[in-house]
């Protein structure tokens, strides 16, 4: 039996608080990973989309969602992974970008920057906002980030790659 006392927006509000396991200052909703909630006779279907195809955080996110649903006695619930439309960093809200910057991660440029082979994109330092930065490595601690160095304040920082 579906507990129909919960509406779609109530569930979205509930799940919107779940943090991204790798960047806990932003939520899965702010990242654009939480796509939809479908309520049918059979129960609640939470639709999510992966950031990267090999994103190891997806399993954890699924567990967190099911845990949250269980905690609030909303059953039966399941999580469905969708690939269409493909996730893009353009879906990140301005608030999420600002949160990333404050956390020390330079937010992604527009996804069109992905098309350049030898990217000469200017990435601003999230600490001092200097534009004199250089890439140390295109691949950082996770698939979604690159490693940069600021030539002004000399700090190293991560850049969330546009996707």
């Amino acid at each position: 039996m579906v507990n129909t006392t919960y509406t779609k927006s109530q569930i979205i509000d509930l799940l919107a608080g779940i943090p991204d396991p790798e960047i806990p200052v932003v939520s899965i909703q702010e990242m654009g990973m939480l796509r939809d909630v479908v309520i049918t006779e059979e129960g609640y279907d939470i639709i999510i989309t992966p950031t990267y195809t090999g994103c190891p955080a997806m399993g954890r996110i699924e567990q967190d969602i099911l845990g949250m649903m269980e905690q609030h006695d909303i059953a039966p619930a399941k999580v469905t992974l969708t690939l269409d439309p493909a996730w893009s960093t353009d879906w990140m809200s301005d608030e999420a970008r600002e949160k990333l910057r404050k956390y020390g991660i330079a937010p992604p440029l527009h996804s069109s920057c992905n098309k350049a082979r030898f990217g000469d994109n200017v990435i601003h330092c999230p600490i001092c906002n200097s534009e004199h930065t250089s890439m140390v490595s295109r691949f950082g601690s996770t698939a979604c980030k690159s490693l940069y160095r600021c030539n002004s304040c000399l700090e190293s920082f991560e850049y969330f790659k546009c996707h």
């Binding site: 269409d84 493909a86 082979r117 030898f118 790659k161 996707h163």
Partner: peptide, 15 residues
């Protein structure tokens, strides 16, 4: 749908 994700990753690999 798979291609839409793969193409973005492949561009980073190529670069």
């Amino acid at each position: 749908a798979i291609a839409a994700k793969a193409v973005k990753e492949a561009r980073y690999h190529m670069a």
